[in-house]
């Protein structure tokens, strides 16, 4: 079976600084992969490359067997199929929650305004934000804002979700409400790639955990194996530090 997403020897540099140095991974339909690693290891860049927000220098990225990293390819249709949620939410501050969620389905998918708004209201309700639909992002808590950002992505009915450290900017007591949404997505069979610092969550939700170091995947394994019996020395060191910091 064709993998949902396939990265084949992906390289990416910013100027002379290499960020991704030969990333290869297969992601099956409905699989959830958690990327962990220290800051600067390339987690975010990797996700941004999959969403074509960054172009890659070498290698290829396939979605359902189609090369989406071909130079000159129009990225917009690809992005409609891949949702992305950012660490800092990136909500549109001049629009209400409802407008944030309904904009893209209306403008990109060509849904009528009414249709896109009624879908948006359903989604907003599903994420427990009905009473906030007509408020502005700045009037919401961080957790609520991030849930709106997830709703905004889901409104496009994506086949894959990329979650880029979506809880890193949140107060600890707000993390749970966002992770609940991710759990629900998993139970619905969403294919997801997440960059995260929440080790406990990665352990719970991921089918595979991958450790990134200096732009390379050092190891990828089932969570129990990854956390209990890491193969690579660097992974052991990283997990050691995380444990010492009380984050595992």
């Amino acid at each position: 079976m064709t993998p949902k997403i396939l990265l084949d020897d992906v390289h990416k540099s910013f100027g002379t600084r290499p960020v991704l140095q030969g990333i290869s991974i297969e992601v099956a339909q409905s699989e959830v992969i958690a990327f962990i690693g220290s800051s600067g290891s390339g987690k975010s860049t990797l996700l941004r490359c999959v969403n074509l927000l960054e172009s890659i220098d070498d290698g290829a990225i396939f979605l359902d067997g189609v090369d989406i990293s071909a130079p000159g390819l129009n990225p917009d249709p690809v992005r409609q199929r891949i949702g992305m949620v950012f660490q800092s939410f990136n909500l549109f501050p001049h629009m209400t929650v409802l407008q944030n969620v309904s904009l893209a389905p209306h403008k990109v998918l060509g849904q009528s305004k009414k249709e896109s708004e009624s879908h948006a209201r359903e989604l907003i309700a599903r994420l427990g934000l009905s009473d906030r639909a007509d408020g502005y992002p700045d009037q919401l808590s961080g957790g609520q804002q991030q849930r709106v950002a997830i709703a905004r992505s889901l409104a496009m009915n994506p086949e894959v979700m990329l979650l880029d450290e979506i809880t890193s900017a949140l107060d600890p007591e707000l993390v749970g409400e966002v992770l609940d949404v991710v759990r629900e997505l998993k139970s619905n069979g969403m294919t997801m790639l997440l960059a995260t610092h929440e080790m406990g969550f990665a352990k719970e939700i991921a089918d595979r955990v991958c450790f990134l170091h200096e732009g390379q995947i050092l190891e990828c394994s089932r969570p129990t194996e990854f956390f209990n019996n890491p193969a690579h020395q660097r992974t052991q060191q990283f997990l050691q530090r995380v444990t010492e910091a009380g984050r595992l």
């Binding site: 941004r48 969403n51 927000l53 990225p75 917009d76 249709p77 992005r79 409609q80 891949i82 949702g83 992305m84 950012f86 800092s88 990136n90 909500l91 549109f92 904009l103 893209a104 403008k107 990109v108 950002a149 905004r152 992505s153 496009m156």
Partner: peptide, 15 residues
């Protein structure tokens, strides 16, 4: 980040 947010939803440059 506003541009990234918009483009990630599939909005074109002009949109």
């Amino acid at each position: 980040s506003q541009r990234a947010g918009a483009r990630s939803l599939g909005l074109s440059t002009s949109q």
